[in-house]
Simulated assay, not measured.
Amino acid sequence: MKKLNDLLARIPEMQARAKQRAEREPLPGKPLPKNVVQLPLWPEPVRAVPNGFLRSALFGAIRKGRRRFVKGEQLAALDGIEIHYTGERLDQGDLDVYESVLHAVRLQELGSQCRVTSYALLKLMGKTDTGKNRATLLTRIERLRANAIRMKQGRYSFIGGLVDEAYKDEETQEWVIVLNPKLRALYGADQFTQIEWTVRHELDGKPLAQWLHGFYASHAKPFPMKVETLLRLCGSESELRRYRQTLGDALDAVAEASAAHGEGFSYEIRGDLVHVEKRASGPQRRHLAKKASKPRKPRA
């Protein structure tokens, strides 16, 4: 009887562990045939984003209000990434929507019509289905459609819009969204990052903290960065003095949200340099191990 009671007492714990394992597994379903262009099949709890989007000012940490319209402007980005952008400036809220669109599209062929309701997209973003949120979603999808980028990341370049087509079926109330198949080139090996969605969602309303979380998530082993460099890369239009004051608060928010969801993140600002330490994700640990195993070339 005691064994039975002990087993019954452990059922909630066993169910919780099973749920955690299930959430970490990729969604059911097999990749499409090899001749079909498809995004990688990442697990449900994460959102996969090309590193060029996370290591640049494309989706900036910009203040609310009227957006600047730019034409062919080269955006700040880390070495090895080059982005020229035409359109209204994009922010972290736009990235939330785009991540949700990518998440919905990943199970089907790129270039085909993805039908998804406003309710489903808002649910993916952790938003309630209200008239205000639907109106904001419409505005952001329009902004994602009405742009053009020329981007070089690694060996490949991409020229096109972030969204090829977007329209709404008024009968079914579904969005019909089409993405350019050439986007697949930005998802090569070691060219994209799986962002922990629970951490990003907890930072909702804190654009600089969201940008910093994505930026550092894209690095397996972050290197010290100048405060001025981070200001330029995040696309903020704030003055350097004011930015220094908000940077610490934003990094604190990232550290707290990361700790709350089991991610390791700590930082220290020494003079003009920001030092960050984090626990690498599974794929990043494999990348570091692979990099360490490569024989080093002798110095000349």
Rank of each mutant, 00 (worst) to 15 (best):
H219G: 13
H219R: 13
A220I: 05
A220V: 02
A220S: 13
K221Y: 15
K221G: 14
K221W: 15
K221C: 15
K221F: 15
P222Q: 04
P222R: 06
P222G: 07
F223G: 15
F223D: 15
F223S: 15
F223E: 15
P224Q: 05
P224H: 06
P224T: 02
P224L: 03
P224D: 04
M225Q: 14
K226G: 14
K226V: 08
V227F: 06
V227N: 10
E228C: 10
T229N: 12
T229H: 14
T229C: 12
L230W: 10
L230Y: 07
L231D: 06
L231I: 03
R232S: 14
R232H: 13
R232E: 15
L233P: 09
L233W: 02
L233G: 09
C234G: 08
C234Q: 08
G235A: 08
S236I: 01
S236K: 03
S236E: 08
E237G: 12
E237I: 07
E237T: 07
E237K: 09
E237Y: 09
E237M: 13
E237S: 11
S238A: 15
S238L: 15
S238W: 12
E239K: 10
E239M: 10
L240R: 05
L240A: 05
R241H: 14
R241G: 12
R242A: 14
Y243S: 07
Y243H: 09
Y243P: 06
R244D: 09
R244F: 08
R244H: 07
Q245M: 11
Q245Y: 12
T246Q: 06
T246N: 05
T246R: 04
T246E: 06
T246P: 10
L247K: 00
L247A: 02
G248L: 10
G248I: 11
G248Q: 12
G248M: 09
G248E: 13
G248S: 13
D249P: 11
D249I: 05
A250W: 03
A250T: 00
L251Q: 00
L251G: 01
L251K: 00
L251R: 00
D252R: 01
A253W: 02
A253Y: 04
V254F: 01
V254E: 06
A255E: 10
A255R: 02
A255N: 02
A255Y: 02
E256S: 07
E256F: 02
E256D: 10
A257F: 00
S258E: 10
S258L: 03
S258Q: 05
A259P: 01
A259V: 07
A260P: 00
A260T: 07
A260V: 04
H261S: 08
H261A: 11
